[in-house]
Each structure stands twice: as C-alpha cells, then as structure tokens.
C-alpha cells in the first residue's frame, strides 16, 4: 500500500467499526452510536480527499489580493479544496438532526417496553 492511501484506509477502518456496531449489536443505544460513528467516518473521508500538503484554510486575507483587487494565483495554489468542506458542513448538521430523531425514538421505545434490547421489542401494536 502506498503511503498516499493510509489516511483514507484509516478513516474506512472507523467506518467499518461503526458498521459492525450496527450489524452485530442488540442494544438500541449501541446502534445509534454505530450510525453516528459511520457518519463521522464518511465526513472525514470526504474532507481528507480535499486536503493538499501544506495547504491552508480557504480564507482570503489582504495579502492574497493582487493590485487589481482579484485573488492571486498564489492563494489558489496553496488553499485546500473548499467544495467538500461546504458540503460536509451541511452533512454534519444533518447528522445532528438524524441523531435527535433517533434519540427521540429510542426514548419512546424505552418508555413503552422498558428495555433497549431490540430482541425483546417485538410487539408491533402501539
């Protein structure tokens, strides 16, 4: 494996750990944690794709403007990719919304059945 792929592979290891929790665990809280960890790993992977060695945050300072008021090529050639960052920002917040919804459902499940164990939540009638 070339060293250029190691960070990608490590983020995918995190993803697989979360996937394992989703598949193998019987506890609702553990499943929620697994889904959230998977979410983190995917976000991290996409941001890793846009990183550039020695790159800086895509924020323009006064020193980056050339005389005509445009952005200099020096900035474009040292900044990291801003597009994944903008999309992942949306994804993180949506992850929060999903987490809130899952926690609400788990709360109701525990109130109704008195357990987090999905093997014992079998009655379908509300």
């Amino acid at each position: 494996m070339s060293s250029g792929a190691i960070p990608f592979a490590l983020s995918m290891v995190v993803l697989l750990i979360g996937l394992y929790a989703i598949i193998a665990k019987a506890n609702v809280v553990k499943i929620i944690i697994g889904i959230l960890i998977t979410d983190y790993a995917v976000n991290l992977f996409l941001v890793l794709l846009g990183y550039r060695h020695g790159g800086r945050a895509p924020i323009v300072t006064k020193a980056d403007l050339d005389t005509s008021g445009g952005v200099s090529m020096g900035f474009v050639n040292t900044s990291v990719d801003p597009v994944p960052q903008a999309l992942i920002l949306t994804s993180i917040v949506i992850g929060l919304a999903v987490a809130a919804m899952m926690v609400a459902l788990a709360l109701r499940l525990h109130d109704k059945y008195g357990t987090f164990d999905i093997t014992r939540i079998r009655r379908l009638k509300g």
């Binding site: 070339s2 060293s3 250029g4 792929a5 190691i6 960070p7 990608f8 890793l48 794709l49 846009g50 990183y51 550039r52 060695h53 050639n77 990291v80 990719d81 597009v83």
Partner: peptide, 8 residues
Amino acid sequence: PFGSPLFS
C-alpha cells in the same frame, strides 16, 4: 494520493 486533491 492523499495531499494532492484533484482540482490542484
């Protein structure tokens, strides 16, 4: 590889 994104 990591560190040289496509757009660069």
